[in-house]
């Protein structure tokens, strides 16, 4: 098991090098001069521009820029943004906000998605099942910004339960509404996934055998049906957590959440190479770790899966 984890982590190194190189190159190849763009309509003296270019190594050829960036990363220096703020500082303020948002969203998905899916699956063809399917189909079909605006209007303006945008410092109660919006689409997916899985498990021979042993339905459902049905659902949840962690650009934009998605979007617009690449590097790392955790979780949920040493 330990050997397996080490091997997976070693595999992450070439992936990280490859992604950072690609992202760095793409930012480099973006049209327009980021330094000129910084000054907007004003035309600064050429010396100032040259000075800034030198400071951010923009006068060097691409490959040199990339190697300087890599070298700095190994020394723990992620560089500074054009506004003069160290990138590590930006990371430290935005990731915790997104983490809280993601945790709340996944919590909603899990609790509501699995419960609704389980009841639907056990009462296949009933009224509850039919309505759950229709609702989940509507939620899947809606673009997220529509859900976001409707939620803002109803819960923020009409009912006044939540603030429409997130206040300074991103207090947790302000994050609930954006988290609910983020959760809706995955909620629908989880309802369908759980439902299909429960229906499939319910017809398995071992469920009948459990009943023939004299077990009550109230024991069979959680122990023999739900536990077996959760394997695909948990995988989906974990991957979804990874997706949410790397930022929900649209939702964070609408609710003004100072998280990863919004910050990265602004950095891309401004052509800030170091900020974009640092963010993406951290995102790739999160993705790799989440994927590894999903695979390990598999082995916990299903004893038949064991990884070679």
């Amino acid at each position: 098991m330990a050997g397996y984890i080490v091997r997976r982590l070693l595999q992450a190194i070439p992936v990280l090098l490859g992604t950072t190189f690609l992202i760095y190159y793409m930012v480099f190849a973006m049209p327009g001069d980021p330094i000129v763009a910084l000054f907007g309509d004003k035309t600064p003296p050429p010396q100032v521009l040259d000075q800034l270019r030198e400071r951010y190594h923009l006068d060097q050829p691409f490959i040199v820029q990339y190697l300087i960036f890599l070298g700095n990363i190994f020394r723990g220096d992620l560089g500074t943004s054009f506004s003069g703020q160290p990138v590590s500082e930006i990371l430290a303020t935005t990731f915790p906000v997104t983490l809280r948002l993601a945790v709340i969203a996944v919590f909603f998905e899990m609790v509501f998605g699995i419960s609704v899916g389980l009841i639907s699956g056990l009462r296949k063809g009933g009224i509850f099942d039919a309505s759950a399917l229709v609702v989940s189909l509507i939620l899947i079909s809606l673009p997220i910004f529509v859900v976001a605006f409707v939620a803002q209007y109803i819960f923020g303006i009409q009912l006044g339960w939540f603030r429409t945008t997130v206040g300074p410092g991103a207090p947790t109660q302000d994050l609930i509404l954006p988290a609910l919006v983020l959760a809706t689409i995955s909620f629908a997916q989880i309802v369908r996934l759980t439902r299909a899985s429960v229906i499939d498990t319910d017809t398995q021979d071992f469920v009948r055998t459990a009943a023939s042993k004299g077990l009550s339905r109230t024991r069979i459902v959680p122990v023999h049906i739900l536990r077996n049905s959760l394997i695909p659902v948990v995988t989906y949840l974990a991957v979804d957590f990874g997706v949410l962690m790397v930022g929900a650009t649209v939702t964070e934009g609408i609710f003004n959440v100072p998280g990863v998605g919004r910050t990265l979007y602004q950095a891309i617009i401004r052509g800030e190479g170091p900020t974009v690449v640092s963010f993406v590097t951290v995102m790739v790392l999160i993705y790799l770790v989440v994927n590894l955790l999903v695979d390990l979780l598999y082995a916990v949920l299903d004893p038949r899966i064991r990884y070679a040493k």
Binding site: F206, R208, A210, K213, V223, P303
Partner: peptide
């Protein structure tokens, strides 16, 4: 009645035990 008065031995040993629980768990449960 099931289990206590009527015992049942099913057909296919491969599919009639829950793969995610240990043998002991499944026997103790009965």
């Amino acid at each position: 009645i099931r289990g206590r008065k009527i015992g049942f031995v099913p057909q296919d040993p491969m599919s009639n035990l829950n793969p995610v629980w240990s043998i002991g768990f499944q026997v103790e449960e009965a």
